[in-house]
């Protein structure tokens, strides 16, 4: 898959591959908040999100020396790895829950999940976390990461029509969950 329209990260990644400290700092500054946000929104757990982000950067550092300019966009590659790592976590979480059923119905990682959260942010977080994984992924990629529909669909291995359907269902559910907060 050839990258389209050039890769704004390409030069930086090549320098990272050579061990250039300034490039390492610059790439981290550029990508860390964005990728942490993705993991946090996908997992709804601050500690797991940091674990996944650390693992993601370990992989990026390993990949950098052999990065092939012009083959794929680095940001797309990074998102793909991040999403896969998040799904690994979600799968593991489900397996753990199946192997060791919780005594209480709600063992979500967020301490105040299920309670009447007072601040809007927490309410949104809870509403996002309650979405089915694929719907949440669609919202995270398109709304928070601001990927194009084509890039998000490619990352999710679905058609753009299927992506649109996931987004519509997700936003309807979010709208319903947050309806009482709307003016």
């Amino acid at each position: 898959m050839k990258s389209q329209g050039g890769d704004p990260d390409e030069e930086l990644v090549v320098r990272v591959g050579r061990g250039d400290p300034a490039a390492i700092q610059a790439l981290m500054a550029r990508k860390l908040p964005r990728m942490l946000q993705l993991a946090r929104r996908m997992l709804d757990d601050a500690i797991e999100a940091e674990d996944v982000t650390q693992e993601l950067f370990l992989r990026a550092w390993k990949q950098a020396p052999s990065w092939q300019p012009g083959v794929a966009r680095f940001d797309t590659w990074l998102h793909r790895v991040a999403v896969n790592l998040c799904y690994d976590r979600l799968r593991r979480r489900r397996e753990t829950l199946m192997a060791e059923p919780p005594e209480q119905a709600d063992l979500g990682p967020a301490p105040d999940r299920g309670l009447q959260a007072r601040d809007t942010g927490r309410r949104v977080e809870a509403a996002l976390a309650a979405l089915p994984d694929r719907q949440r992924e669609a919202v995270v990629l398109c709304h928070y990461q601001e990927l194009s529909n084509i890039d998000a669909a490619a990352l999710m291995s679905v058609s753009v029509e299927a992506l649109e359907s996931l987004l519509s269902r997700a936003r309807r559910a979010l709208r319903a969950a947050l309806a009482d907060m709307r003016e």
Partner: peptide, 20 residues
């Protein structure tokens, strides 16, 4: 309204420590 999370200092350091 959902604010972006801030990376912790420990995360930043762990990432830098593993850099090429």
């Amino acid at each position: 309204e959902l604010r972006p999370p801030q990376p912790s200092a420990a995360l930043r350091q762990a990432i830098l420590d593993a850099a090429p």
